[in-house]
Design a protein around this nucleic acid. Structure first.
Lengths: 247, 247
DNA sequence: CGGTGATTTGACGCCCATCAAAGCCAGTGG
DNA sequence: CCACTGGCTTTGATGGGCGTCAAATCACCG
C-alpha cells in the first residue's frame, strides 16, 4: 500500500517503521495544502518564519544570491522534502527558496512540529534524520564543487537525484522525469549554462546518460557511478528499516 | 570578566545571556578534557559516536576524502567550536575530523547534551543555534566554491575566520594567528596548493592582506570585504544579546 | 648538517567562462 | 492558420584562470 502514502511518509518510513499513532500525527502535517505557481518565493533570505513546508508535488530549490546577480543553488527539493525546516527551528533563514515548477505543498507550523516531538518521539527522530540527511547532502555538494570536474559533477548530481526520487517512489534505475532547465543545472553545479550543455552532450555521446525533453535516462549506470565516484552512503537510505515499535 | 570564560561560553553568550544555572551545566561539558597530537583523527567517516568534542585550544578540521586520494575540507574548527556534534544527535558521521595543531578538547557525552536540553532550555537553544550556525557556514562555503574566483574565495574565507575568532576573543580587526598550511587552504578552497600561493602573493601585492609566518594581517579590510562581497549576516553574531532570564 | 616538509616561482596547457548567433520550441494574438 | 515573441537549447570562436609538472629556496629539527 506504499503507493497510497504521501512522499514524506514514504521517505521517513525508510528510516523508521512508524506506528499508527505516528502516522496520525504525521497526517496533520498535510493539512493546509496549498498550490504555488512556478517561480513563487516560499522563503526569503533574512526573514524568520513560523512555518515550513512539506513538498507534495513538483520541485523547488533553495539558493543564495550574490551582489553581482549570480546565483548558487544549494539544493533542490523533490516530493517528500521539507522546505525551510531549519529556519523555523532556529534562526532567520540564511537562504531563499522558490518553486521550480508549479508545486503543491503543505504549510507546517512550527508548533505542529514541536508538538509532534513531545507526542511522538519516533516521528521526531525521523524528522531530525531528514534534517540531518539534508545537511549531509549539502556537504556532498560542497565536495562536488570543490573537487570534481564538470562531467563528474553532473554525473554525481544526477545519480543523487535519481536515488532520492526512487526513495519516494518516483522514477527507477533507468531514469526519471526532470523539470530542470540547463540554467538550473548551471546554478547548482557552479558552471555556465553553455558548459552544462557541452557536458550533457559529452555524457550522451559517451553512452553514459541522456537528459533531453525533461527526461533523464541512465544509459550505463555502472560506468556513470564509476565516473562520479558515487557512494550513496551519505543518503543513508540503504539500511534495513528500524523495527516497528512493538517488534 | 569575559576573558576568564571558556571560548564556548563566550560564543554562546553572544547569542543568549546564560544564567548561573546554565553556566553550571555548561561547565560539565568541560570535564574529561584531553589533549591530542597534531593529525589525530577525532571522528572517522562512517562511524557512529556516543560523544562529541568541544575544542578548547588549537584548530581542527572536518573533511571528506575522495577515492582518488583528494581531500575536501568542509570547515575548520577553532576554540569554542563543537566537533562531531551533529553525528551524535542523529546518525553515523558522513565525514572525518582531525586535529590541525596540537589541541585540547573536552569529550562531551551525548547524554550530557541531551540532559542539558531537559534541564536548561536556554542553553539548549544556544547549542542548537551553534549547530545551525555551523550549517550556515557550510552553505556559505558552497557559494564560495560555486560562484567566486580564487582571490574572492581566499578573501572571504579569511574574513570569516577573522570574524569567528574575534567572537571567542582571539585576534582583532588587524588580523589573527593562523596555523594553517597552504595545503590546508588549497583543500578548503578547492584549489591547488600552487595556486593558493599565487593568490596570497597577489592579495599581498595589492595591499589587501598578508599571510606569512603563521599570521594573517588585514592590510585593507574595507577593500578586502568589497572584493569578497563579504556579508557576515550568516554568522549571526552581530545582533544584540537576548535579555537575561530575569530581565 | 643532512633530511623532511612548506613555500615560492616558472613554463605549459587544458578546462571552462564569455561572447555571439542560430535553431527550436510553446504560447499568443491577429 | 500563421507571424511573432520569449525562453531554452545548441554550437562555434576566443581567451583566461587555474591545474600540473618541475625545481629552487627556505625553515625547522634531530
Amino acid at each position: 500500500m506504499l503507493t497510497l502514502l504521501s512522499p514524506l511518509t514514504r521517505k521517513l518510513s525508510a528510516y523508521v517503521a512508524l506506528s499508527p499513532g505516528d502516522l496520525d500525527i504525521l497526517a496533520r502535517f498535510h493539512k493546509r495544502r496549498r498550490s504555488f505557481r512556478l517561480g513563487h518565493e516560499l522563503v526569503h533570505e533574512g526573514q524568520s518564519h513560523g512555518s515550513a513546508f512539506v513538498l507534495a508535488k513538483g520541485w523547488a530549490c533553495s539558493y543564495k544570491m550574490l551582489p553581482d546577480g549570480e546565483r548558487q543553488i544549494v539544493d533542490f527539493q523533490v516530493p517528500g522534502d521539507f522546505i525551510g525546516l531549519r529556519s523555523i527551528l532556529f534562526r532567520t533563514s540564511d537562504h531563499s527558496a522558490e518553486a521550480v515548477t508549479r508545486i503543491e505543498a503543505s504549510e507546517v507550523l512550527a508548533s505542529d512540529i514541536l508538538d509532534s516531538f513531545a507526542q511522538a518521539p519516533r516521528l521526531a527522530t525521523a524528522v531530525l534524520w531528514a534534517a540531518s540527511r539534508d545537511e549531509a547532502m549539502v556537504v556532498e555538494h560542497l565536495v562536488n564543487l570543490g573537487r570534481r570536474s564538470a562531467d563528474e559533477r553532473m554525473a554525481h548530481f544526477m545519480l543523487e537525484l535519481g536515488a532520492r526520487l526512487r526513495l519516494v517512489g518516483v522514477g527507477d534505475a533507468t531514469g526519471f522525469d526532470c523539470p530542470l532547465t540547463q540554467y538550473h543545472l548551471a546554478d547548482v553545479l557552479g558552471l555556465s549554462a553553455v558548459h552544462v550543455n557541452r557536458v550533457l552532450r559529452h555524457l550522451r555521446e559517451e553512452g553514459l546518460m541522456t537528459f533531453q525533453k525533461g527526461r533523464v535516462s541512465f544509459d550505463d549506470i555502472a560506468r556513470l557511478k564509476q565516473l562520479a565516484a558515487f557512494d550513496p552512503e551519505y543518503l543513508d537510505q540503504g539500511r534495513p528499516f528500524l523495527p516497528a515499535p512493538g517488534a
